[in-house]
């Protein structure tokens, strides 16, 4: 029979934070497309992605504030560790450990991201000391009840999309390139995403998500960008759902880079020593 933690696990089981940070560009003919607009959209997205090369590994604590339509708030806390991919044929590796609520404290998710194949993911349930390989097919599901879907954490993975350049636009006094992108992977909840990338430091500032009926579903605002040795990180990601009025803000603390993490820190055997 089952332990209760298994039920809890279901709600946190399928997050896909492996590629929460932009990964290095991979030259992919399909992603580049074959029209001038798609080539330009790809190039601008690739330049944004490549601004992140060489971050090596990072650690950061994060806080997620979930707000319902009545304005009631719930808080979730996590810590993330990320290892930049070894080469362009694979994705980043990441480890997410839950800090709160306390009943799920210590629950951890290890992800090995892939480009178009589903990611490899293991869940660690500290009360049972159980390591469980889980399915990562749930792309469009909600991450811990928030307005973020699992696939929203991979939005900057270049070759997961095809692109179309729309034009330039002034976004709150900042010149941006506007690009539409179309998911290439299976099980996406979106027909397209529209993104605004600034022309100065090439970072994504805003994303609109369109549902399967092509109606606006959510808007993501990325702000509080800070530079770490040439690598930029947004410290506030605010997602507002246009259809149900709920919102979720993900706030990062200070990032630490090149912390000495290695491949062994992202193997399933390491999960048991986390807690």
């Amino acid at each position: 029979m089952f332990n209760n933690m298994l039920g809890k696990a279901a709600s946190v089981a399928f997050l896909t934070l492996a590629t929460i940070f932009p990964a290095a560009a991979q030259d992919d003919a399909v992603a580049r497309g074959d029209t001038p607009d798609s080539q330009k959209g790809y190039d601008i997205s690739a330049r944004s992605d490549r601004s992140d090369n060489g971050f090596s590994d990072s650690r950061v604590d994060a806080r997620m504030v979930l707000k319902n339509r009545a304005g009631q708030e719930t808080v979730r806390e996590f810590s993330f560790a990320t290892l930049e991919k070894e080469n362009e044929g694979v994705g980043d590796k990441s480890l997410v450990v839950f800090g709160s609520p306390r009943d799920v404290e210590g629950t951890a998710l290890l992800s090995h991201a892939n480009i178009l194949d589903p990611d490899d993911q293991w869940l660690y349930l500290p009360a049972l000391k159980r390591v469980k390989r889980i399915s990562s097919a749930n792309k469009s599901g909600s991450f811990v009840g928030s307005e973020f879907a699992f696939e929203d954490f991979t939005i900057t993975e270049l070759n997961k999309f095809t692109y179309k350049y729309i034009g330039e636009e002034d976004l709150d006094g900042m010149m941006t390139d506007v690009i539409e992108r179309f998911p290439r992977y299976e099980n996406s909840g979106y027909t397209k995403q529209k993104s605004w990338i600034d022309q100065e430091i090439y970072q994504t500032r805003k994303v609109e998500f369109y549902d399967r009926k092509d109606a606006l579903l959510k808007t993501l605002i990325l702000s509080d960008y800070r530079e770490y040795d040439g690598v930029w990180r947004a410290h506030s990601l605010k997602m507002v759902n246009a259809q149900n009025g709920k919102e979720t803000e993900l706030v990062y603390g200070d990032f630490e880079f090149k912390t000495g993490l290695g491949a062994n820190d992202f193997e399933q055997g390491v999960l048991r020593r986390l807690r």
Binding site: F2, G7, A10, V12, S142, G145
Partner: peptide
């Protein structure tokens, strides 16, 4: 045989039922 329903709400509501 069993079934697990996870509502994925803020309260992590879940129901598990089974029979051996």
């Amino acid at each position: 045989a069993g079934a697990r329903l996870a509502l994925n709400d803020l309260q992590d509501t879940a129901i598990l039922a089974g029979a051996t």
